[in-house]
Structure formats: structure tokens, C-alpha cells
């Protein structure tokens, strides 16, 4: 469904992605993991065409993103929902308006009443109807994440991308978000979920596929079980959470 073929991306002299090949399957929860600075968020931005590769191709549903103009890219992005690291809610809109935003802007062919009904449905799905009139500044970090998820879900995207959904969260909120990821996928089995994370516990508990990035390349792609049983020394070191080992930190 989503393919990276020989994708490279360099910032200054730092090669963040280096001839990266990866495949994300439809309808599954795929975790892209790796230590900080390995290009996980850059990979996510390539999936939705917010960044273009210096070399290589990104193919989504058979379409090479590099061949699309800005207008076509904007249209294609309507198939995606993204939960950003800091939720990225619009400060000038209240919770309900934030969730309504993609429906209003993408003109999903729904009447105003149906759009509002859909926004209420997704807010109810994540138990956030009670804060519908609050503004983002009045919400806790966990609440913002949940509203961000509701907004990402509102337009019924084919692909849902999560950028570090549990970073900076306390363990309870983290677990709640992990459960939400599973519930959301169970709610719509056709939906593809891609989670960028360095939270190994969440990946092992939630993922159906795990892709590990190291030095800009995918060094492992498989099930959590395959990840656990990998003999790759870098994977083993990351899994064990040890500082000593072959993994380079700087």
C-alpha cells in the first residue's frame, strides 16, 4: 500500500534517510521505531508528501508522490488523518470546530447537519463530548491528544498516521492512547495505522508490524515476535535498552 523505494533525504550534511526501502501493509497497525534522530518523523512527512525525497520514490496506493503537483498532493492528503506530536489543534477554534475543520474544508459532500453529526460521533467515540466547547488552551496534554485523534478520524481517512502519540505522557495516558489506537483500528478494519514511536512497550503491545530504522535505513520489518527474536545486534541492543553495544549515538 505504501512503498518507499531507495528514499534518501539529507539536511545539510546529515543524511537522515539513506536509500530507505519499506513497505506498509493495508489494514494493519505498523509501528516505525528507532532512537531519536533516526528520521522517523521525516519518514512520516514523506508519506503524506509534506517533504519530498532527494532521491528515490514514495508510492501510495500505486501513485508516485513525486509525480504529483501541489494541488494533487493536497487532494491526496484528504485520504490521510494525522495525529501530530503536540496534537497541533488550532488555537482559534474550539474542540468541536477543530474536529469539524477537516469535514468543512475537505467538502466531503455532506450537509452541515451531517458534518456536525459526524464530529459529535467521533468526539463520543473517544469520550470527549463533554469538552466540545472548550478551547485547546483549556485542555490537558492528554485531552489535546484525544481531540487531535478525533479530528484525524473525523473525515474517515484510509490511513491514520500517529507522530509519537505517547511522547511526554504519563503511563496511564500512554496506555489509554495505545488502547485508542487498537480500538480505532478495530472500529474500521480497512484503516491502515502507522505509528511513529520510540516507545517499545507500546509497540510490542499494539503493533501488528514493526519497522525499525537505524542510520536512515530499515534494518528490520516484521511482527513483534520476529522483532523479539531478532539476532541483529542493533535490534537486540534497542530491545534491551542498553547503552553498551554496536548502536552509535552521535
Amino acid at each position: 500500500m505504501i512503498f518507499f523505494r531507495g528514499v534518501s533525504k539529507t539536511f545539510g550534511r546529515h543524511a537522515v534517510l539513506d536509500d530507505l526501502d519499506l513497505h506498509i501493509e493495508r489494514g494493519k497497525i505498523t509501528f516505525i521505531i528507532g532512537k531519536s534522530g533516526e528520521g522517523k518523523s521525516v519518514t512520516l512527512k514523506h508519506i503524506i508528501g509534506l517533504m519530498r525525497p532527494d532521491a528515490g520514490t514514495v508510492i501510495v496506493d500505486g501513485v508516485d508522490l513525486g509525480s504529483l503537483g501541489e494541488g494533487e498532493l493536497l487532494a491526496l492528503r484528504k485520504n490521510f488523518g494525522v495525529l501530530f506530536q503536540q496534537a497541533a489543534l488550532f488555537d482559534h477554534l474550539n474542540v468541536f470546530e477543530n474536529v469539524l475543520f477537516p469535514l468543512e474544508e475537505q467538502g466531503a459532500g455532506l450537509s452541515r447537519a451531517l458534518r456536525e453529526q459526524r464530529a459529535e460521533e467521533v468526539l463520543a467515540l473517544i469520550n470527549m463530548l463533554s469538552v466540545r466547547d472548550k478551547y485547546p488552551g483549556e485542555l490537558s496534554t492528554g485531552e489535546k491528544k484525544r481531540v487531535g485523534l478525533a479530528r484525524a478520524l473525523s473525515s474517515k481517512p484510509a490511513v491514520l498516521l500517529y507522530d509519537e502519540p505517547t511522547t511526554g505522557m504519563d503511563p496511564l495516558v500512554s496506555e489509554m492512547i495505545d488502547k485508542l489506537i487498537v480500538e480505532v483500528n478495530a472500529h474500521d478494519p480497512q484503516m491502515t495505522s502507522v505509528v511513529i514511536s520510540h516507545d517499545l512497550k507500546a509497540a510490542m503491545a499494539t503493533a501488528e508490524r514493526i519497522i525499525m530504522l537505524y542510520k536512515g535505513r530499515g534494518i528490520l520489518s516484521g511482527s513483534p515476535q520476529e522483532f523479539r527474536n531478532s539476532s541483529d545486534p542493533v535490534v537486540r541492543q534497542f530491545f534491551a535498552g542498553r547503552v553498551e553495544g554496536p548502536m552509535e549515538f552521535f
Partner: peptide, 18 residues
């Protein structure tokens, strides 16, 4: 600029809004 810093512009583009 604050919207850029808070990734709101990225979010907007990700939703297909210019």
C-alpha cells in the same frame, strides 16, 4: 509563526488545506 512552531501549518497541509 506560532502556528508553524506548533505544527498547525503542517496539520493544515496534512488535511489537504492550503
Amino acid at each position: 509563526a506560532t502556528m508553524v512552531v506548533r505544527e498547525q501549518i503542517d496539520a493544515m497541509e496534512a488535511m489537504g488545506v492550503s
